[in-house]
Each structure stands twice: as C-alpha cells, then as structure tokens.
C-alpha cells in the first residue's frame, strides 16, 4: 500500500513538472500582459520599470527557473491584476468551488442511485423506461444551456431563486460555506443542479447496468432462498455491490466536475476558482492561470489516489500492491 502511494505521488510529481513547462511555455506565447496592465499613456521608462518589477524583461527560461524556484517554496508569483499572491487567490476561492462540486455530487448520487436501482430491478416497467429516457436527455443536454434555462424558468419567469452570486455564507473555521443556511441553499440550488445533472444521468445508467448484473448473481439467489425480505436483499446485498463502481466513477468524475465548475461558475457568477480562471485567461494573468492548473492537477491526483484506496477498501478482492 505504502509503495503504491509513493509510486503514485512520484508519478504525480512528474505530471506536475511536465504540465508546468507546457503551461508556462504556452501561456508565455500568448499576448503581452504589459499591453493590458500598463496604461497606453505611460512612458517607455515606466513600461520598462513595470516589466522589471514583474520579471517580464528576462528571457523565458530564466523566468521559468525563477518560477520553479519560488514555486517549490509555495510561492507561485503575484497576480498581475490583483497584486496578491496567485496561490492565495486560488485557495481563497477554492472552498466555493469544492462546495459546489461536492453538493452537486451528493445530489446526483442521492437522486441517481435509487432511480437507477429501480430501473435495473424493474427494467420492464414504463417507469423504468421513462427513467432511462430521462437519463439520455440528462447527459445529452448541454451543461451550460441547462444553466441558462434554469435561470430563465426559476429566476426570470417564476422569480423563486436568485440568478447569480453566492449570497450569505456561514464562517466555519475560516471557511465560508453556503449550505448551512436556507438563504445559502437558494443560491446554491441552481448551480448545483446544473453541474450535477449530467453526472446524475451517468449514475442512473451505471446503477441500472450494475443492478441488472448483480441481480443474476448466485449470492442474490441464495439470499432470496434463505428467505430474506426483499427489502434486505435489495437494500443490503444488491446496493452494497452497486456502490463499488458508483464510488469509483463518482470519485473520478469529481475531477471533471471541478473542471466543469468553470462553466457553471461563469453562468451563475459563483465566486469560485473556475470563474477566476476565466477572468485570468481574459486578462492574461499568467501567474494565476499557472497556479490554478497546478492546484487542479494536485487536486485530481489526490482524488484519484483516494478513489483507488477507497476501492480497495470497498472491494476486498482488489490489492493495490499489484497495481502497475
């Protein structure tokens, strides 16, 4: 287990290193941040002074080495736009994104698993077909368009929910959270629904497919033959086996959700790190873009590591040491 974790962390370090070069070179090639940062009336001398203060006058490889040197000490440079440390800006906004992604995930599991289970166990019924048709719709609908339509219906036409922003938050150990108050939920509902919809459809399909497979297994027949109540057969024996793939997929999809939060946050003006990324791309704010990517890569690696460990806990047949 320990060997496995160490190997994965080393792989992650390699990925982060390669990524940082690619991103740095890529970001370096686009536009001149000075053109945006310095007012057109500034003199040549001022421009040079600003370039020097941001380190933009040095050759690219030198900038990169300087970046790596300070990045290893946890310093990703200062945002050109905000003048604050980039990593601080990202971490400040991360809780909002993580909260949104986690709520969306929980919502999609709580809705998706029962529906998928039903569709799998009673796959001949009309309701099961309706659920499956709904799931096709769920993952076919373009994510951002769903968001717009939800705004149109619930914010504009009905006026029930706010169209943008995060609203009031509760401070828990220095982290701002929305889901603890009803007012916070009002702001959270539409973005979380938008983000979770396609995942929910995925979970429905997965739960259905697994349920149909598990249903035919010997241990289910045995449990029935033993005279267990249907409730126990489904609620314990089948559900437990469904949850193994569901956990894996949900965990791995969490990374996609965090990435997709970029869109949801843009639509609903949710003050998370995804919105910060889009703003930073528009403003050519290199340090923030690079810091965002590195944070997200670490997050993705962490998530997949946790999922793998969880998988081996849930399914005793899996041994991590053997994994290549």
């Amino acid at each position: 287990m320990l060997v496995f974790i160490i190997r994965r962390l080393m792989q992650a370090a390699l990925v982060v290193a390669v990524m940082s070069v690619l991103v740095f070179v890529g970001i370096y090639m686009i536009g001149d941040p000075l053109a945006i940062l310095v007012s057109p009336e500034a003199t040549e001398l001022d421009r040079e002074a600003i370039a020097r203060s941001l380190g933009l006058d040095r050759p690219m490889w030198e900038q990169y080495l300087a970046f790596v040197g300070s990045a290893l000490q946890g310093d990703f440079g200062k945002s050109f736009v905000f003048g604050q440390p980039a990593i601080g800006l990202i971490l400040e906004r991360m809780p909002a994104t993580l909260e949104l992604a986690l709520i969306a995930t929980i919502m999609s599991v709580l809705i998706g698993v029962p529906l998928g289970l039903y569709a799998g166990l009673r796959h001949e019924t009309v309701a099961a077909r309706a659920i499956m048709a709904g799931s096709v719709l769920g993952f076919s609908l373009p994510n951002f368009w769903v968001g717009l339509m939800l705004i149109m219906v619930f914010a504009v036409q009905l006026g029930w929910l706010p169209a943008s922003g995060r609203g009031p938050t509760v401070d828990v150990f220095g982290i701002q959270l929305s889901f603890l108050t009803l007012a916070g939920w009002k702001y959270l509902a539409l973005p979380a629904l938008t983000l979770g919809l396609s995942k929910c459809a995925l979970i429905v399909r997965l739960a259905r497919a697994t349920a149909r497979e598990v249903m035919l297994m010997d241990f289910v027949k045995f449990a029935r033959a033993k005279g267990l109540s249907e409730k126990r057969v489904i609620g314990v024996h089948i559900l437990k086996n469904i949850m193994v793939p569901i956990t894996t997929v949900t965990g791995l999809e969490l990374g996609t959700l965090i990435a997709f939060a970029v869109i949801t946050e843009t639509i609903f003006s949710w003050p998370g790190m995804g919105k910060l990324l889009i703003d930073s791309i528009v403003h050519l704010d290199r340090p923030v873009v690079v810091a965002y990517l590195i944070v997200v890569v670490l997050l993705l690696v962490l998530i997949s590591l946790i999922v793998d460990i969880l998988y081996s806990v849930l399914d005793p047949r899996v041994r991590l040491g053997d994994a290549k």
């Binding site: 890529g26 090639m29 990435a259 890569v297 993705l300």
Partner: peptide, 15 residues
Amino acid sequence: LSFPAILVALILLAV
C-alpha cells in the same frame, strides 16, 4: 485522459 477534456481545450484555446 486523466485531465478533464474541457480544461485541456480551454487552456489550448487560451494559447
């Protein structure tokens, strides 16, 4: 493939 497609495309287009 360990990266979300949207993120890769987003950064590429930014470049």
